[in-house]
Design a protein around this nucleic acid. Structure first.
Ligand SMILES: [Mn+2]
Ligand SMILES: [Mn+2]
Ligand SMILES: [Mn+2]
Ligand SMILES: [Mn+2]
Lengths: 217, 217
DNA sequence: AAGAATTTTTAGGATAGACTAAAAAATATC
DNA sequence: GATATTTTTTAGTCTATCCTAAAAATTCTT
């Protein structure tokens, strides 16, 4: 297993490859490599039985591939907790350093680090940390866009793209914060949120889709 | 700069490449790669002006190469302190994980980690941590083999090979411990040490050469 | 100083990973 | 249903890193 293969499996997972086929096109966009390189990597992972492949359709993770992807995500997220809680990183800063460290961490190191951090359940943007064996704990949060007007909710998880996190920092949206959904416009229109402290925030539909919440009360 | 080149420069440094020429043979042994691969890497590093090369004699670090080697050693040793002090590693366990992490650490990460650790001066086996700019603080310790009979000394630094550290663990030799050199046999013979607590320890000449001490009193 | 032994270099390959350009297949449009 | 567009695959290169085997240079032995 090389860093490249690991990142590739992770990308497939993050594009939904546990349940659906993921197209080469998507991987080209996500990994910023050429289409030819995607085909090539597919061939390699296929030979190792980490993915299944339907020509001209896309790839899906096998059990084995899924386990490796989740173990990498576990490493990534444990590092993110460390960077955030011990080294004082902002939540938008953790991702890129964790993306390198995840490939340079022995299993033993990660288990010791996990204990040092108090066996956290979530990373700094609310992503659940997979178990050591590559399985994932159940979570029960829904995209903000699925809420109906008047709903009370708490922020549980947000997408981990650096610019998006910066945007949320600017909008003062953070994990655990509670809001009421005052208004949601049709045709993928903007959402108006009202915090318990009273201030109102308006965000677009696309951004709201990247925010997972849990209903309260 | 790639992990391989970094490790290569570090190996040259550790073989004395700051002051003397280091032979290909030495690098073959240290890095466990073929002689052909050493020649090849030399050519690459030469083109980047990180080393100077005297054909059939060996290589030395340039200013630039030395700076990179020291910055890598800084990363390595700061990680070793972390593994030892925060994650409870024994001093013989830290090396291999640090050897991977050193290549996956941004400068920012290392500076934050350094502050988190309280800006340590030495790594777990007494190696001095180079400065951020790639320079090295002065130290003033000598190989145990240079001491004369009757000398009182304190253990300051030991070689960082895993088996050697295990051996020292077994011999109950650790940093800061004070001894008297009771006897030193000629012709590279064994040394007899007496700890302040009274127990005597006999070690061979080769091992003693890997232990740096500071005279006390 | 000649021959033996050692060390370094050269030559020729292999593999992983990434690229561009062109061909082939699938999908969308009219 | 024919044509145009998009996506995927194939073909041909490139770089980094590693190897083995053979040649060349140096050093050691007698
Ligand atoms: Mn992340
Ligand atoms: Mn990564
Ligand atoms: Mn070390
Ligand atoms: Mn290393």
């Amino acid at each position: 297993m090389t860093p490249n293969k690991e990142d590739f499996l992770k990308a497939i997972y993050e594009l939904g490859g546990q349940n659906q086929v993921v197209t080469n096109k998507d991987l080209v966009r996500t990994l910023s490599i050429s289409a030819a390189s995607v085909t090539e990597m597919n061939t390699r992972l296929l030979k190792e039985e980490l993915i299944t492949h339907l020509p001209y359709q896309g790839v899906m993770l096998t059990e084995k591939g899924l386990r490796i992807a989740n173990q990498l995500i576990r490493k990534h997220r444990i590092w993110e907790v460390f960077l955030s809680e011990k080294l004082g990183y902002e939540w938008n800063e953790v991702h890129s350093d964790a993306d390198l460290l995840e490939h340079a961490s022995s299993d033993l190191l990660i288990e010791r680090l996990n204990i040092f951090l108090g066996e956290p359940t979530f990373d700094p943007h609310g992503g659940v940390i997979p178990n050591k064996d590559g399985s994932t704990p159940e979570i029960h949060s829904t995209p903000l866009t699925d809420c109906s007007q008047g709903a009370h909710f708490k922020i549980k998880e947000v997408d981990d793209q650096e610019e998006f996190l910066e945007y949320l920092l600017y909008k003062k949206v953070h994990l655990g914060k509670e809001y009421t959904l005052v208004d949601i416009e049709p045709y993928d229109g903007p959402l108006t949120l009202k915090a318990t402290t009273g201030e109102e925030t308006i965000i677009g539909h696309k951004a709201a889709f990247k925010i997972l919440v849990e209903l309260t009360e």
